[in-house]
Simulated scan of single mutants.
Amino acid sequence: MELRRARAGVATLFFTNGAVFANLAPRYPEVKADLAMGDAVYGLSVAAFPAGALAAGLLAAMLVRRFNSRVVAVVGTAFAAFALLAAGIAPTAVAFALALFAAGAADALTDVGQNAHGLRVERRYGRSIINSFHAVWSLGAVVGGLMAAAAIALDASRAVHMSVSTLLVLILAFGAYRYCLPGPDTAPVEAASAPVTTNHVNARVVLLIGALSLVGIGAAMIEDVANSWAALYLRTEADASATVAAFGFIALIGGQFIGRLLGDGLIDRLGQGAVARIGGALIIAGFGVALSVPVTWVMLAGFVATGFGMATLIPGVMATADKIEGLRPSTGLTVVSWLMRIGGLVASPLIGLLSEVEGLRAALFVVPVVGVVVLLFSGAMKGKA
């Protein structure tokens, strides 16, 4: 019973983490227009989110060991919710960027906290369940995106919309806290899984972290495209309405949700590496179609395929990193999670600058390139959970 309650608690934390940001992301084109930002300035502004994550991310392992993962996850969620509310009502581009920086810092702590707790529960289960948690994150993101689309259709102000979403997220996150596993994350029952008390870093560990980080950075770049550019791409290339454009984000994350629902079973059957290679091929094909045929329904179908392809990459990278031999609990997870944020930091400024010169459609060809990178380095994600 305790284990099932803990799984439900962790799933709720993943849901809130997906929903809180997704309520704002589909309204980015509106923010961009209201604050009179060009593509380059907009790209730099939204890059403040991963910049904040990079600034705070390496503190996560220390905080998890000091306070335990459920505390870090819940408190981080609360701070992220308030920061995103501030971003939604920001009066200037600078204020928008500063709020996103704070939200990114909080999200980095939440990310490690909830994944550390999810992997703790997974170890108790003795089989792969981490993708199911990330599926719930994607479900939360879809729900958040639908809330945003509804708010746009109803002409609700961002202040009202984001205030409501913040309140709902806080209720769910603090409610989930009591269901999570009690005690420190290095409790005696888990001692056999995490006996290392000091880090032993060698060339093998460095190379493995590097390869995992490249896959994770690629996946993070695609998530940033979903968050920051999918809706804008539909508006500019397919002349979609604001409400329809919001479904660009929903299609990508919806495909990711389906992939994560199926992910644990596929990984148990085929292994992490094989599933990652299939994902890389789907990213290349799906986004290639979305870029080649500027018709709304075709673009949305390509987004769904891309989301399905990227579905297991981030949870797979995190699960593999958390099991690297010779590292203290949460160290591999924290380092790789931190490095993955580079993807989000680089993606938006790069796409924004390329868009100013070549147009948004040409700039988004970075996504199929990411698929190639995944194919090349997926071998780092070996084994079955």
Rank of each mutant, 00 (worst) to 15 (best):
Gly9Val: 03
Val31Asn: 04
Ala36Arg: 15
Ala40Pro: 06
Ala47Phe: 04
Phe49Glu: 07
Phe49Ile: 08
Pro50Gly: 07
Ala53Cys: 12
Ala55Ile: 09
Leu59Cys: 11
Ala60Gly: 07
Ala60Phe: 02
Ala60His: 07
Phe67Trp: 11
Thr77Met: 14
Ala80Ser: 12
Leu84Arg: 15
Ala86Thr: 01
Ala106Asn: 04
Thr110Tyr: 10
Glu122Ile: 05
Ser128Pro: 15
Ser128Glu: 01
His134Ile: 05
Val136Met: 13
Val142His: 15
Val143Tyr: 15
Gly145Glu: 03
Gly145Ile: 04
Ser165Trp: 02
Leu168Asp: 07
Leu170Arg: 08
Leu170Ser: 01
Tyr177Asp: 04
Pro184Ala: 11
Pro195Val: 07
Val215His: 04
Val215Ala: 06
Ala219Lys: 08
Ile222Val: 13
Ile222Gly: 08
Asp224Arg: 00
Val225Met: 15
Ala242Cys: 07
Ala242Tyr: 06
Ile250Cys: 13
Ile253Arg: 11
Ile258His: 11
Gly259Pro: 10
Asp264Phe: 01
Gly265Ile: 09
Leu266Trp: 06
Asp268Ser: 10
Gln272Pro: 11
Gln272Asn: 13
Arg277Glu: 01
Gly279Tyr: 13
Gly280Trp: 02
Ile283Leu: 06
Phe287Lys: 04
Val293Glu: 00
Pro294His: 00
Phe303Thr: 05
Phe303Pro: 15
Met310Asp: 01
Met318Gly: 03
Ile324Met: 00
Arg328Gly: 02
Leu333Tyr: 00
Leu339Asp: 02
Met340Cys: 08
Ile351Arg: 07
Ile351Trp: 12
Leu360Gln: 09
Arg361Leu: 03
Ala363Asn: 10
Pro368Phe: 07
Val372Asn: 10
Leu375Asp: 03
Leu375Thr: 01
Gly383Ser: 08
Lys384Glu: 00
